[in-house]
C-alpha cells in the first residue's frame, strides 16, 4: 500500500467515523457539517476529472452545481404547491423523490455540459477559462431574473425530499446517502482514470499532438470528460440544495466555481482524494477561522498562496509524496 492509499483510507474512514461519533454524542450540527464536506467534495471530484485528468481549467462549474440545485428546487417546489411543471402537451408533475431528482439533475447537467463544452473546447488556455466563466455568469443572471422560481431570493423547500426506505430528515441517514454516493463516484473516478479512455485523456493533456498522431481526437476525449465532470458536479448540486432545503442564484455564482476549484487545488490536483481533503480543510477553516473573524477568507487566501507556491501537490501531495502525478 502506498502512502497515498493509506492517507486516502484514513481520510475516508475519518470522514465516516466523525459523524457517527457526532450522532452518538447528539451533535446534529456536526453531522450537517460533515454532510457539507461530503457534498462539496463530490462537486470537487467532478471538477477534478476535467481539471486534473483532462487539464481543463473550468471556471464555470457553478453552472452545473446550480443546475443540479435548481433541478431539485423546481421539482420539489411544484410538488409542495401541488402544481404541475407543465400541462401541455403532456403533464409533468413535481416530485419529492430523491432518485428522480438526481436523475433529472444529472441529465440536465449533462446536456448543459455538452453545449458549454462543445463551444468552449474550441478554445484553450486563458480563453477556455474565460468562456466557461462567461457561460456560468449567463446562467447566474438568468436565474436572478426568473421570478417564477424566486429570482434573487431563491427557492425554499420546507421538507427534505424522500428516499425510499430511509428517513432523510434524520441527519445521520441523509449523511449516509451522501457518503455512499461520494464513495461510489470516487470508485468510478478511479476506474475512469485507469481505463483506456483515462490513458488517452491523460496523454492528451500532456501532448495533444501525439494523441492525434495515433488516430484519436483530443476534442472528443475532452468533451466526454467535461460532460462526465458536469454530471457529477450537478448531482452534488442537487444534494447540496437538499441539505440546505434552499436553492438560490448564489449556487451559480462565479465565487462558487472558484470555491470548487479551491477544493481541488488545496487537496491536490489529479489526486483521487484531493477534493475530499480540500473540501474538508475548507470547511474546517470556515468553521474555525470563521468563528474568529468574518474576514477569514484572508487566511484562506494566504494558505492557497502557500499551496500554489510551495506545495503544488496540495495536501495529499505534501503528506503522501509524489505519486507520479503532475503538480
Amino acid at each position: 500500500m502506498t502512502r497515498e492509499t493509506l492517507f486516502n483510507a484514513v481520510l475516508g474512514l475519518g470522514l465516516f467515523a466523525f459523524p457517527l461519533w457526532a450522532w452518538w454524542a447528539e451533535e446534529p450540527f456536526m453531522i450537517t457539517l460533515s454532510t457539507r464536506v461530503v457534498i462539496l467534495a463530490l462537486a470537487g471530484v467532478g471538477l477534478n476529472l476535467a481539471l486534473g485528468l483532462g487539464g481543463l481549467v473550468s471556471l464555470g462549474h457553478a453552472a452545473f452545481f446550480g443546475i443540479g440545485g435548481y433541478a431539485m428546487g423546481i421539482l420539489a417546489s411544484h410538488a409542495q404547491s401541488y402544481t404541475p411543471l407543465m400541462e401541455f402537451p403532456f403533464v409533468i408533475e413535481g416530485t419529492k423523490s430523491m432518485p428522480v431528482i438526481w436523475l433529472v439533475a444529472v441529465v440536465a447537467s449533462a446536456l448543459a455540459a455538452l453545449v458549454i463544452g462543445a463551444l468552449s473546447l474550441r478554445t484553450s488556455g486563458v480563453y477556455f477559462i474565460m468562456i466557461t466563466l462567461a457561460f456560468g455568469q449567463m446562467l447566474f443572471y438568468f436565474a436572478i431574473s426568473w421570478p417564477a422560481y424566486g429570482g434573487e431570493d431563491g427557492l425554499s423547500i420546507y421538507v427534505r425530499n424522500s428516499f425510499p426506505g430511509l428517513n432523510t430528515l434524520d441527519p445521520i441517514q441523509f449523511f449516509l446517502i451522501c457518503y455512499a454516493i461520494l464513495g461510489a463516484v470516487l470508485l468510478l473516478s478511479a476506474r475512469l482514470a485507469a481505463s483506456p479512455f483515462g490513458l488517452a485523456l491523460n496523454a492528451a493533456r500532456q501532448t495533444s499532438e501525439r494523441v492525434e498522431t495515433v488516430g484519436i481526437r483530443p476534442y472528443r476525449l475532452r468533451l466526454t470528460v467535461f460532460v462526465i465532470s458536469g454530471m457529477i458536479t450537478g448531482l452534488a448540486g442537487a444534494l447540496f440544495a437538499d441539505l440546505n432545503r434552499f436553492v438560490s442564484p448564489s449556487m451559480l455564482s462565479w465565487q462558487t466555481s472558484g470555491e470548487i476549484m479551491v477544493f481541488v487545488i488545496l487537496g491536490g490536483v489529479a489526486r483521487l482524494f484531493g477534493p475530499v481533503a480540500g473540501a474538508l480543510l475548507f470547511i474546517l477553516l470556515e468553521h474555525v477561522l470563521g468563528g474568529l473573524s468574518e474576514y477569514w477568507h484572508i487566511y484562506l487566501g494566504l494558505l492557497l498562496l502557500g499551496v500554489v507556491l510551495f506545495a503544488r501537490g496540495g495536501v495529499i501531495g505534501t503528506l503522501a509524496g509524489q505519486g507520479g502525478k503532475h503538480g
Binding site: R191, L192, S195, P196, G198, V214, G215
Partner: peptide, 22 residues
C-alpha cells in the same frame, strides 16, 4: 503507457471507461 496509447489508437476503441487499460 506511452506505447499502450499507440496500441489503443490503432485498436480504434479509446472510448472504454471501466476496465483497466493495463
Amino acid at each position: 503507457q506511452n506505447v499502450m496509447l499507440g496500441a489503443l489508437g490503432a485498436s480504434g476503441r479509446p472510448f472504454r471507461f471501466l476496465r483497466p487499460v493495463l
